[in-house]
Design a protein around this nucleic acid. Structure first.
Length: 764
DNA sequence: CTTGTGGTTATTTTT
DNA sequence: TAACCACAAG
C-alpha cells in the first residue's frame, strides 16, 4: 500500500504524543489501524498495553476488524489480541470500575429512559422538584414528569463539563448532591456516572481501590488512541489525562471541522489546544481527500473557510482521489414548492441510475443504483415528508430512520390497549378492536383467547411475591395466547410489526426495571399512565435500519447520521433559512437552571453559526462525485428565504444553477456496491444465536425483552452473592462453604432460595 | 439602523 | 411556555 508523507509520519510516530488532523476522506481509519499494528511489532509491547477509543459501538466494531486484519498481515497470529481494548470510553471505564472497585460490581447501569424514570419516581430525592428554574427574574420549581429531561441534562452537564460548582445556586448544588446520593443508595450508574467516577478515581489520591486502579493503569496502559477527538467533552478529556499521566503515549485523531455533537458538550477547544496541554505533541495533517472530486473538495473548503481562523486548525484539504469533475456534477437549484423539489430529486435519481461509476482507481465501472443515492436533511422529521411520498408513489425502495413514531403505529396502539384494559381504562371491546384493526392477522376469536391473560393480571394473588406478576410476562403471555406469528402478518409487514412490538417490549423492560419494587396493581396503573403521557416522547422512531440488512435502497438520513459515510451522489434539499442553519429553540433550557456564566463556552450547547457551518461541511464532503443542493419555500412564514449556505454555493463557478442531464450513452446495468455488513456481536449475543436462532432474532433484532423475575429476583441475589465473594477475595478473605447459606439469605428478600444457597456453596 | 409587536415554532443523538 | 423571526414603525 502507498502512503502519503503525512500518513507515513502518523503511522510511524510512536514515542512522541501525536495529533493527527484528518480531513474528510483522508483514510483516517486505515492510518490508525496501521499505526496500532506497528505498535504491536515493537519490542516488549503487548496487545493489552494498547487502549483505543471510539465514540460508538459501531465505529469500534469497524476499527477492531481493520486493526486485527492489519496485525495478521504484519505479524501473523498474535497472542492475547483479545486483551487489546478497542471500544467506547464508557465500556472501558465500566470495566475499570468493575475490576478494581469491589463496590461497583453490584451497580446496575441505567440507560437514558431508566434514568428519567428514576428522576421522576423519586422526584424529591432526586432533587428534581426542589430545584428551581429562573425565568425572567422569577423562580419556579421544576415539575415532575414535565421537566425531568431538562433536569437530567443539567445533572449531566454539572458532572461532565468544567462547571464552577462553587458558584451554583444552593438549590442546584443540593440537587446535584441529592441526585448523586440517590444513585449510590440504589446502586445505579447513569452514563455520566461511569465516566465521572472513573475520571475522579484516575486523577485523585485516595484509598485502596483508587490505588489498585491507578497501579493497573500505570502498569498496563502504554498507548492510548482516541478517535474523533474533536467530539470529546471535559470529563472524557479528564479520563484521557488520567490514563496518560503516568507516561503513556497519547495519539488523538480528529478533524475540528467535523465537530457536530457540541450540544452534547463536545468542546472543539480540546483538539485546538492539545499541543499546549500535552508535552511534545507532533502534528500530522492528512490533507489529502481520496474520496471526492476536486470540485466537491473545493466547495467544501470554501464552506469551512468562512469560519474565523482562530477557531480552526489550519489545513488545506486537497483532492487526491481518482474521481473527476465534469460540468453539471454540482448543482444548486430552486423550486416553487417542496413537492416540485421532491419530484425533481427522484427524476434526477432515475436519470443517474445506470450511469457508469468507478469505486476505486482502476476498478471496472459499474452502473449506479438506488443505494448509491443519499438524501441528507438537517431534520428528517421536519422535511423528508414530500420526498418519502414521491418515492413511495414511484415504488422506489428507500431506507429512513426517525420518521414514523413508534407509539403511533397500530400494533403498538393495540399493545397499549392491553395495558389500558388491565388498568381499567379500556374494556374488552376496545382491546379486540385495537388488535383486529391493527391488521396483524388476528381475528376477534384470536384476541378473545388472549383476554384471560389480562383478566388474570387484574386479579393478582396478594399472597404471592410482588415480582411474580410482571408487565413483561403479561405482554409475552398475551402474544402467546393470541397466537401472533410473524408469518401470519399480511402484506409482508411481519418483520416491521415484530420490530415495533419488540421496541414496545424494550419499553416495558425499561419501565419495569425501575418500578419492579411497586405493588403489581400500582405498577400496572402507573405503566398505563406512563405509556400514555411519557413513553411516546422517549421512543420516537419506529422503523429503523437495524444494522443487519443492507438493501439496495435510497438512503434518507440526517446529516448527523451520515457522518463517516460516503455516496457517489448526495442530495441536500430544504436549504432554507431557519432550517439549515437551524434557528434556536424556545422553551425552558438548562441555562434557566444553571447560570450561563458558570459554564465555560456555554454557547456551544445552544449551537452557533459556526457549528451549523461545520455540519454543512460534513454534508458536502459525503459526496464522491454528484452533489445537488436545492431550495424550495414552504407555506410557513419562516420558510420563505434561502439558506446562506445555498446562496454561497451558487456563487461558486463549478456549481450550476440549471441541471445538465447526464448523457444516456454508455449506460450500464445498475449494480449496487456489494458491502459486507459489519455485524458486531457480543458473547451473550452468540449464545442466544446458538441456543435458538429464532429467539436470537426476537431478542437482538427486534428487541424483545425477557420477563424480569430471574434477572431482578433470584438472579440478582446470585449476582450480589458473587459480588460479595469477589470483593472479599480481593481483600484476602476467602469465603468458607459454611457461609454459603448466610450469604445467600443476606442478598435475598425473604427466605434463601435453595438454588442460591447451593450456588453460593459451589463458588465458596 | 434600532426598537416594538405579534405570530409562530420548538434539531441533531450516543453512551 | 419561552424565544426568535419577520415585519412595521420610529
Amino acid at each position: 500500500m502507498q502512503f502519503t508523507d503525512a500518513q507515513r509520519t502518523a503511522i510511524d510516530t510512536h514515542d512522541d504524543n501525536l495529533l493527527i488532523v484528518a480531513c474528510a476522506g483522508s483514510g483516517k481509519t486505515e492510518v490508525i489501524s496501521q499505526r496500532i499494528a506497528r505498535l504491536i511489532g515493537r519490542p516488549g509491547v503487548q496487545p493489552r498495553n494498547i487502549v483505543a477509543f471510539t465514540f460508538t459501538e459501531k465505529a469500534a466494531g469497524e476499527l477492531k476488524e481493520r486493526v486485527h486484519t492489519r496485525i495478521r498481515e504484519l505479524h501473523g497470529e498474535v497472542h492475547g489480541l483479545a486483551e487489546m481494548y478497542i471500544g467506547t470510553m464508557h465500556g472501558y471505564a465500566l470495566d475499570l470500575l468493575h475490576s478494581h472497585v469491589p463496590e461497583a460490581f453490584k451497580y446496575n447501569v441505567l440507560n437514558d429512559v431508566q434514568t428519567r424514570l428514576i428522576i421522576d419516581k423519586y422526584s424529591t430525592q432526586s432533587g428534581l422538584t426542589t430545584t428551581n428554574a429562573i425565568v425572567q427574574g422569577t423562580s419556579k420549581p421544576l415539575r415532575r414528569w414535565v421537566n425531568s429531561k431538562l433536569y437530567q441534562q443539567v445533572m449531566s452537564i454539572l458532572r461532565e463539563d468544567d462547571v464552577d460548582l462553587d458558584g451554583l445556586r444552593s438549590d442546584v448544588a443540593d440537587g446535584l448532591d441529592k441526585y448523586m446520593q440517590l444513585l449510590s443508595d440504589r446502586a445505579y450508574f447513569d452514563y455520566t456516572a461511569i465516566l465521572h467516577n472513573t475520571a475522579v478515581l484516575l486523577n485523585d489520591e485516595g484509598d485502596e481501590s483508587v490505588l489498585s486502579l491507578q497501579r493497573h493503569v500505570k502498569e498496563t496502559v502504554r498507548y492510548v488512541v482516541v478517535d474523533e477527538y474533536q467530539d470529546t467533552n471535559p470529563v472524557q478529556e479528564q479520563l484521557i489525562r488520567g490514563l496518560t499521566r503516568h507516561g503513556a503515549n497519547l495519539c488523538v485523531v480528529g478533524d475540528d471541522d467535523q465537530t457536530i455533537y457540541q450540544w452534547r458538550g463536545s468542546a472543539v477547544e480540546n483538539i485546538l489546544t492539545i499541543e499546549n496541554r500535552y508535552p511534545g505533541v507532533r502534528r500530522a495533517t492528512l490533507n489529502e481527500n481520496f474520496r471526492s472530486s476536486p470540485a466537491i473538495v473545493d466547495l467544501a473548503r470554501r464552506v469551512v473557510e468562512q469560519i474565523p481562523p482562530g477557531d480552526r486548525l489550519s489545513k488545506a484539504m486537497t483532492a487526491a482521489g481518482h474521481q473527476t469533475f465534469d460540468r453539471g456534477d454540482l448543482l444548486a437549484l430552486e423550486f416553487p414548492d417542496t413537492r416540485a423539489e421532491a419530484d425533481w430529486l427522484v427524476d434526477r435519481m432515475e436519470r443517474l441510475r445506470g450511469v457508469p461509476f468507478q469505486d476505486r482507481e482502476g476498478s471496472e465501472p459499474r452502473g449506479l443504483d438506488w443505494s448509491d443515492f443519499a438524501v441528507l436533511f438537517r431534520s428528517v422529521k421536519a422535511d423528508a415528508g414530500p420526498l418519502v411520498e414521491e418515492l413511495r408513489r414511484r415504488d422506489i425502495p428507500y431506507v429512513i430512520k426517525g420518521l414514523t413514531k413508534l407509539f403511533e403505529t397500530p400494533e403498538v396502539q393495540a399493545a397499549v390497549s392491553c395495558f389500558r384494559f388491565v388498568a381499567g381504562e379500556a374494556d374488552e371491546q376496545d382491546v379486540i378492536d385495537a388488535w383486529v384493526d391493527a391488521g396483524v392477522g388476528l381475528t376477534e376469536g384470536d384476541v378473545r383467547a388472549g383476554l384471560p391473560v389480562l383478566t388474570a393480571a387484574m386479579r393478582w394473588d396478594a399472597s404471592k411475591p410482588w415480582d411474580s406478576t410482571t408487565l413483561q410476562g403479561v405482554f409475552l403471555d398475551f402474544l402467546e395466547a393470541v397466537e401472533l406469528r410473524e408469518e401470519r402478518v399480511p402484506r409482508e409487514r411481519g418483520e416491521l410489526v415484530y420490530y415495533n412490538l419488540g421496541r414496545f417490549s424494550t419499553a416495558i423492560g425499561d419501565f419495569e426495571r425501575i418500578h419492579l419494587t411497586s405493588e403489581p396493581q400500582q405498577r400496572f396503573d402507573a405503566f398505563a399512565k406512563w405509556v400514555e403521557y411519557q413513553a411516546p416522547d422517549y421512543y420516537e422512531e419506529s422503523d429503523g435500519d437495524n444494522g443487519y440488512a443492507q438493501p439496495n435502497a435510497v438512503v434518507i438520513a440526517t446529516v448527523h447520521q451520515a457522518k463517516g459515510m460516503q455516496w457517489p451522489a448526495v442530495f441536500l434539499p430544504a436549504l432554507r433559512k431557519n432550517t439549515f442553519p437551524a434557528s434556536g429553540r424556545g422553551g425552558l433550557g438548562v441555562f434557566h437552571v444553571v447560570e450561563e456564566s458558570l459554564v465555560p463556552g456555554a454557547a456551544r450547547y445552544r449551537g452557533t453559526e459556526a457549528d451549523e457551518r461545520r455540519l454543512f461541511y460534513v454534508a458536502v464532503t459525503r459526496a464522491q462525485k454528484y452533489l445537488a443542493l436545492s431550495f424550495a419555500p414552504t407555506e410557513k412564514r419562516t420558510g420563505k428565504k434561502r439558506s446562506d449556505f445555498f446562496n454561497e454555493a451558487t456563487q461558486v463557478h463549478t456549481v450550476l444553477t440549471r441541471e445538465v442531464r447526464p448523457s444516456s450513452d454508455g449506460r450500464l446495468t445498475p449494480t449496487p456496491m456489494r458491502g459486507i455488513p459489519e455485524v458486531v456481536m457480543s458473547f451473550s449475543d452468540l449464545k442466544y444465536l446458538f441456543e435458538c436462532p429464532y429467539s436470537f432474532k426476537l431478542r437482538l433484532l427486534y428487541g424483545f425483552d425477557s420477563p424480569l423475575q430471574k434477572e431482578l429476583g433470584f438472579g440478582k441475589s446470585l449476582h450480589d452473592v458473587m459480588a460479595e465473594i469477589h470483593k472479599r477475595a480481593i481483600e484476602g478473605d476467602i469465603a468458607a462453604p459454611e457461609e454459603a447459606e448466610d450469604l445467600a439469605s443476606a442478598f435475598h428478600d425473604g427466605p434463601p432460595t435453595e438454588l442460591a444457597g447451593r450456588f453460593a456453596f459451589c463458588v465458596c
